[in-house]
């Protein structure tokens, strides 16, 4: 479904991502794990068109995304939940969701809004409230709901567990699994490697901008090097 080929991304003179290749198949949950600065977020930013690739190719359902603008990529049905959630503080919960469906028709937007209010009752309850007044966990729900407004086929999640309490982390991952069961393909980026690998079909381990390891979620969970470096087990 998504195929990344020899992707290199630079920040000025620094190569943040070096010749990375990976793929995501329809219906999968794939995770990229790795330490801070490994290049995970840079890859996601390039996938959503906010950063441009220096070389390499990104293909999604036979469309070449490499040179497309962010809005064209949203139209291709890829949505991103950015790192730190980035909800629009000052806009109401409902307005935040409407912005998520900016490119959708009025009818699709309404249908999707109904669906999201059903999935996240807390958002329905607070729809008229300033999004800044939500708790961190509720903001995460909103950020996910907002991304779902564009009816994505592929959902990119950047560190959804960051800054959340353990209860909300669990909730968030349960929602990710549920969305996946309903047919959304997921690419998940996490520092919380253990939780991510548990729900992932496959995973890639990233270090210094390169892919070091790949395997199924279970393989990586049981891999000694991964355990040692990323799961804090000796």
């Amino acid at each position: 479904m998504l195929k990344v080929d020899n992707l290199t991304v630079n920040y000025g003179a620094i190569e943040a991502v070096k010749q990375v290749s990976f793929n995501v198949n329809q219906g999968e949950i794939v995770t990229l794990i790795g330490a801070n600065g490994a290049g995970k977020s840079t890859i996601l930013k390039t996938l959503s068109g906010v950063k441009k690739a220096a070389s390499g190719q990104i293909t999604f359902l036979d469309t070449d995304l490499t040179k497309l603008s962010p809005s064209k990529i949203v139209q291709a049905k890829i949505a991103q939940v950015p790192e730190g959630r980035r909800i629009f503080a000052g806009l109401t919960v409902r307005e935040n969701l409407q912005m998520g469906g900016f490119l959708e028709s009025k009818k699709d937007k309404q249908a999707q809004l109904d669906y999201i209010f059903e999935e996240f009752p807390i958002l329905a309850e607070r729809q008229g409230q300033d999004a800044a007044t939500l708790s961190g966990g509720e903001q995460q729900m909103l950020a996910m709901g907002r991304a779902l407004m564009s009816q994505p086929k592929l959902l990119l999640l950047d560190e959804p567990s960051m800054g959340l309490s353990p209860i909300f982390i669990e909730k968030t991952f349960a929602i990710i699994q549920k969305l996946n069961e309903q047919g959304t393909t997921i690419l998940l980026i996490e520092q919380n490697a253990k939780t991510a690998l548990k729900i992932a079909d496959r995973g890639y381990v990233l270090a210094n901008g390169k892919i070091k390891l790949e395997g199924t979620g279970e393989e990586l969970l049981n891999n000694e090097a991964v355990q040692h470096t990323y799961l804090g087990m000796m």
Binding site: P70, S71, I73, V74, P82, F88, L91, Q98, M99, F102
Partner: peptide, 23 residues
């Protein structure tokens, strides 16, 4: 209006607005 809300969204966080497909 949709454009009005988008105006406020871009003012608040232009990068996040871009990810919504807002030009």
């Amino acid at each position: 209006t949709k454009m009005g809300i988008a105006m406020r969204a871009v003012a608040i966080d232009p990068d996040a607005a871009e990810l919504m497909g807002i030009n």
